[in-house]
Simulated assay, not measured.
Amino acid sequence: MRILMLGGSGFVGRAVVDDALSRGWDVTLLHRGTRRPPEGATVLVGDRTAPDGLAALAEGSWDLVVDTWSARPSAVRDAARLLADRVGRYVYVSSCSIYADPVDHRAAEDGVLVEGSPDDGEVPYPRAKRGGELAVTGAFGEDRSLLLRAGLILGPGEDVGRLTWWLNRIARGGPVLAPGPRDLTLQYVDARDLARWALDAAVAGRCGPYNLASRQGHCTMGELLDACVAATGSDAELRWTDPARIAAAGIEPWTDLPIWAPPGELHEYLFELETARAFAHGLHCRPVAETVADTWRWLDGLGGASPQRPDRPVLGLDPKVEAAVLEG
């Protein structure tokens, strides 16, 4: 198989490239040259935000292209139009954020979507991803487009600061504010499981949208943080704290306490995605302990300094706020 990866040196894109290379595929990636590319891939340099950013793709043909772009949809539109006659299938990593609020998860992939346009410039993330989907299907048609509406993505290489923040915090040890309840369920997908399924699905000729995450209740908040303690070998003491107390302290779920959302509307939005279609077509999600341990091994090898995407805010709880709540 000949695969073109748009990006490929960062989190999800790197997982796709690594999986493709492990299969012995011929891998070409287009990226800006700001990160070290994977060994074994043909590297083309181009910046999709520049007027001539796709010049390196003027020639060549591939069996499939994988795209994780999450900024302006017009960049996806331009790439899809350029490649439509020279690529067999377009795999676009979208997001479950494109479902309009309030989300009816029972509708699965047929749920109501936010508005979007392939011609949009800079727009909010949900609209950008929806515009990207429309750009792909507009150029490749429904039958040659595979749309991965991913939930929360974790694993080695993460550059958003969710699981990596928890690992670094727990590695420091001492009392840790653990947001309860302990048995609160979580749903996510390891980037490597996403990559494996995406390539398998492309080879099988899958098309259309797929919600991509673990089954609901794949693990709990307690299991996630216990795995962080075990992986880091820390002496951290998890102090399980009631959501009402956390809210009273002005601590924001999802941002101050990454991954966590208290029981209620936000939790339902984030962690009750219907993923039966992907599982019916072969999705497999590894245990949380494996994802956590592998992420710590990667992060520890970087000295704890995980990469941070410049287009995303820095996440995590102020140590002084945490101490005040634990002492209160």
Rank of each mutant, 00 (worst) to 15 (best):
154 L>P: 03
196 R>A: 14
154 L>A: 04
229 V>M: 00
169 R>D: 01
225 L>M: 02
168 N>D: 09
195 A>F: 07
135 A>N: 14
190 D>C: 14
126 P>G: 05
179 P>M: 11
168 N>L: 07
199 L>V: 07
160 V>N: 14
128 A>V: 12
221 M>L: 11
213 A>L: 06
178 A>S: 11
186 L>S: 10
159 D>G: 13
150 A>T: 15
137 T>I: 08
153 I>K: 01
223 E>H: 01
164 T>P: 05
177 L>P: 15
211 N>K: 11
195 A>I: 08
188 Y>Q: 07
224 L>A: 06
166 W>L: 02
180 G>I: 00
136 V>L: 10
141 G>W: 02
143 D>Q: 15
158 E>I: 03
212 L>I: 15
163 L>I: 06
225 L>D: 00
142 E>Y: 00
187 Q>T: 14
151 G>M: 01
185 T>L: 05
214 S>Q: 02
207 C>G: 00
167 L>Q: 06
186 L>D: 12
189 V>H: 11
130 R>D: 07
186 L>R: 09
171 A>L: 04
139 A>P: 06
167 L>S: 06
158 E>Y: 00
163 L>Y: 07
198 A>C: 02
187 Q>G: 09
134 L>W: 14
142 E>H: 14
223 E>C: 02
139 A>Q: 07
135 A>E: 11
205 G>L: 12
211 N>C: 06
156 P>K: 03
151 G>R: 03
215 R>N: 05
211 N>I: 01
180 G>W: 02
172 R>W: 00
182 R>F: 02
191 A>K: 09
206 R>A: 15
129 K>G: 08
135 A>W: 14
219 C>E: 01
147 L>S: 11
146 L>N: 13
204 A>S: 15
162 R>S: 09
194 L>A: 09
140 F>A: 09
204 A>N: 13
197 W>A: 04
212 L>G: 05
217 G>N: 10
163 L>S: 13
141 G>N: 13
195 A>D: 14
137 T>E: 10
135 A>D: 14
179 P>E: 13
205 G>S: 09
186 L>M: 12
210 Y>P: 07
140 F>C: 04
137 T>R: 12
129 K>F: 03
200 D>L: 08
220 T>V: 00
133 E>Y: 06
212 L>W: 10
144 R>Q: 12
176 V>A: 04
172 R>P: 00
182 R>M: 06
196 R>F: 03
230 A>S: 11
181 P>T: 08
157 G>V: 00
170 I>T: 12
217 G>W: 06
130 R>F: 04
140 F>K: 10
202 A>Y: 05
150 A>G: 15
138 G>Q: 09
186 L>Q: 12
167 L>Y: 01
155 G>D: 09
173 G>D: 02
218 H>Q: 13
210 Y>L: 10
151 G>P: 10
155 G>A: 07
167 L>W: 07
203 V>K: 10
169 R>S: 01
220 T>F: 04
206 R>F: 05
211 N>F: 03
190 D>Q: 11
126 P>R: 01
222 G>Y: 04
196 R>H: 14
145 S>F: 03
132 G>P: 10
166 W>P: 08
163 L>M: 12
219 C>S: 12
198 A>W: 06
197 W>D: 03
204 A>D: 15
149 R>Q: 13
228 C>M: 01
194 L>C: 12
193 D>P: 15
131 G>P: 13
198 A>Q: 04
151 G>E: 03
129 K>Y: 05
167 L>M: 08
172 R>L: 05
128 A>F: 04
216 Q>H: 10
